[in-house]
Simulated scan of single mutants.
Amino acid sequence: MSKSIQEIQEEIIDEFSMFDDWMQRYEYMIELGKSLPLIDEKYKIEENLIKGCQSKVWVHAELNGEKLEFTADSDAIITKGIVAILIRAFSGHHPSDILEADTQFIDEIGLKEHLSPTRANGLVSMIKQLKMYAIAYQTQLK
Rank of each mutant, 00 (worst) to 15 (best):
K67W: 05
K51G: 06
A76V: 02
P95K: 03
T139F: 14
R119F: 14
I87F: 00
P37R: 04
R25V: 01
N121S: 10
L63E: 13
E7H: 05
H114E: 08
L86H: 00
Y43W: 15
Y43L: 12
I5C: 09
S55C: 11
K131S: 06
A89F: 01
A120P: 03
S91H: 04
I8G: 06
D75K: 02
E66P: 00
A136K: 12
K44H: 01
G81S: 00
I8E: 06
D97Q: 15
I39L: 15
V57M: 12
I82K: 01
Y137M: 11
Q54A: 12
T71V: 13
E66T: 00
S35M: 02
F90M: 13
S74W: 09
M29E: 09
E46G: 02
I78G: 05
I13K: 12
A72H: 08
S4V: 02
D20E: 15
G110S: 14
G33Y: 09
E11C: 05
L32E: 15
F105D: 05
H60Y: 14
I106S: 13
A134W: 02
A120D: 05
S125D: 02
S116V: 11
C53W: 05
E66R: 00
A84N: 04
M126S: 02
S4Q: 03
S125N: 08
A136R: 14
D102V: 09
D73N: 13
Q129P: 00
K67Y: 09
Y28V: 07
T79K: 01
V57H: 10
D97T: 08
Y133Q: 02
D107H: 09
I87R: 01
Q9W: 07
Y28M: 09
S35P: 01
E46S: 11
A61P: 07
K112I: 00
E31P: 00
H114N: 15
L99T: 07
I106R: 10
F70T: 02
H94K: 11
Q104H: 01
A89P: 07
K51D: 06
K112D: 04
L130H: 01
D20R: 14
A72S: 13
T103G: 03
S55G: 08
L111K: 05
E7T: 10
E31H: 01
Q54T: 15
I85V: 11
D40R: 11
D102F: 10
E41Y: 07
V83Q: 08
M18T: 12
I13N: 09
Q140H: 06
I135V: 12
K44D: 02
Q9P: 11
S116A: 13
I135P: 04
E62V: 06
I12Y: 03
L68Q: 04
V83E: 10
Q9H: 10
